[in-house]
């Protein structure tokens, strides 16, 4: 893939992941790729975004000359409040996480697991050298086990089971053999056509 195509694939992934966020939910967007989802949410979607450094109701990121030095998201971006935003301390922030008040958390892959009702991950399908990131068994130390429902990559959307990844959708322009080649565990094909995003 050329760099130009990679940018398109990344945008497509972020746009697809944004569709996972539904009305009326409380959502934590993890550091990295997931925070980019903010830019692809419909302005009229009623949703409460949470950042673990102590805010609900995250508004648009601001340019440096308009930024509030005391207001960042967990990734360090200078964000803004919206009508109804609140601030709270780290204890309250993680009470919200652990008590199951998050409907969805969208993690970058190398992050801590969280206790939302639904945990999904956004990651590039392969690392910079082209090696698969979706494996039969993780090689890096785990900090949470068996918590992820779905994975969004630049090549596919997959579910997670004990013996492989059920393919849910594939990115436009990616063939099924290419997809299996780039995945380090068996991909289970759905009955019928694989939807394209």
């Amino acid at each position: 893939m050329s760099d130009g195509n990679m940018i398109d694939a990344r945008t497509r992934m972020v746009r697809r992941a944004a569709r996972e966020i539904t009305a009326g939910t409380v959502v934590n967007l993890g550091i990295g790729l997931p925070t980019k989802v903010l830019d692809y949410l419909p302005a009229d979607l009623p949703v409460c975004l949470h950042t673990e450094n102590g805010m609900t109701g995250i508004g648009p990121t601001l340019p440096y000359d308009r930024a509030d030095r005391n207001l960042i998201d967990a990734g360090g971006a200078y964000v803004s409040p919206v009508a109804g935003s609140t601030y709270f301390d780290s204890v309250a922030s993680f009470a919200l996480v652990r008590s199951g008040r998050l409907d969805l958390t969208m993690l970058g892959a190398i992050e801590l697991g969280q206790k939302a009702r639904r945990v999904v991950v956004m990651t590039t399908h392969t690392d910079r050298k082209g090696n698969p990131k979706l494996l039969s068994r993780c090689t890096l130390p785990l900090t949470a086990r068996g918590c992820v429902a779905r994975i969004f990559t630049d090549m596919a959307v997959v579910g997670v089971t004990g013996d492989g990844f059920p393919l849910v959708e594939r990115a436009e322009g990616v063939t099924l053999p290419e997809l299996q080649e780039a995945t380090g565990a068996p991909l289970h094909m759905p009955a019928g056509d694989v939807p394209v995003f």
Binding site: V91, A144, R145
Partner: peptide, 27 residues
């Protein structure tokens, strides 16, 4: 991070420890 916050809260509240399932079965 959340466990760090809660351990500090417990220290401030005069408690000896907290119980959590976060991290169970991992390193």
């Amino acid at each position: 991070q959340g466990i760090l916050a809660e351990r500090i809260r417990a220290g401030g509240a005069g408690l000896g420890a907290i119980l959590t399932d976060v991290g169970l079965g991992t390193e």
